[in-house]
């Protein structure tokens, strides 16, 4: 057996990293040192200082305020997107795994065809067709992420369907919907949890990518991807424009990965 670090280290590191984004989310909801879109022509591209902790951008907007504000979209999109993907994926996976046969084939063909496109490309197509907006980003990314959950639930459902307690439920003539959602679903929670947490991280990455390309959260709202896109012309002159939004993203995503690693090592491969 390979030596692995104490799982608690993952948990503690994850919580510390996530608390950064959590604090900025909560603080950003109620207070920012400057207006999110308030420009100050006198202070364009100033380096971090006591007045502007993270410096200012080319329009003289305070980067610290914008970093605080942007966290709300990151959190909103990642949670809402994963929730959408989870609802869709869970239902599809349970139905495919439970009924099998032709329904299973149709669902799996659909989910495989979504999976064989690069996810971000598909989401970009959807947003290009329906127009860039926050809600379109959420459902488009949710759709792209759903097959991952569908697969986990499908294989889990197939495995559990042969267990005696599910046979027993079938013999008692419990309705299929109830078997799926009351009998099978709770037993798959531990399998889906790590996938949900890494899903949050991947969703954030995709959202930033789309915002970077201008198809995600729309200006004037602040988002990390958009801030990075705006900053790239000033990458040598004003590196703080890149560094701080990137750090925020890294803290969030890395924190989520650490937590998911903790969940996986602590509960993963658990007893059935």
């Amino acid at each position: 057996m390979r030596r692995r670090p104490n799982p608690k280290i993952y948990l503690v590191t994850g919580i510390i990293l996530l608390s950064v984004i959590a604090v900025s989310f909560i603080v950003g909801l109620f207070w920012t040192p400057y207006g999110i879109n308030a420009t100050d022509p006198a202070a364009k591209l100033t380096a971090p200082s006591l007045q502007h902790l993270f410096g200012t951008d080319n329009l003289g907007r305070d980067v610290f305020s914008r970093c605080l504000a942007a966290s709300r979209y990151t959190i909103l999109v990642s949670f809402a997107g994963v929730a959408f993907a989870l609802v869709l994926g869970t239902a599809a996976g349970l139905f495919a795994g439970y009924f099998g046969g032709i329904l299973d084939r149709i669902i799996m063909v659909l989910s495989n065809s979504i999976m064989c496109f690069p996810g971000i490309l598909l989401a970009l197509m959807a947003v290009a067709v329906f127009g860039p907006s926050l809600y379109n980003v959420i459902w488009a990314l949710g759709l792209v992420f759903a097959p991952t959950y569908a697969r986990v639930y499908r294989s889990g459902t197939i495995e559990l369907s042969s267990r005696d307690y599910i046979l027993q439920a079938k013999i008692m003539k419990v309705r299929p919907g109830r078997i799926m959602f009351i009998h099978i679903f709770p037993n798959l929670m531990s399998q889906i949890l790590p996938a949900v947490i890494t899903g949050l991280a991947n969703m954030t990455l995709s959202e930033s990518g789309m915002s970077y390309l201008g198809l995600g959260v729309q200006p004037p709202a602040a988002s990390y991807g958009k801030m990075l896109a705006d900053a790239q012309s000033y990458i040598t002159a004003a590196p703080w424009l890149i560094i701080f939004p990137t750090l925020m993203l890294v803290f969030y995503i890395l924190g989520l990965y650490f937590i998911s690693e903790w969940v996986r090592t602590t509960y993963g491969g658990g007893r059935a």
Binding site: R163, D164, Y165, I166, L167, Q168, H183, P186, N187, M189, A272
Partner: peptide
């Protein structure tokens, strides 16, 4: 059924 390990639903 035969197997007491799977005869009951562990979640309930």
């Amino acid at each position: 059924f035969q197997d007491p390990a799977t005869s009951l639903n562990p979640a309930h």
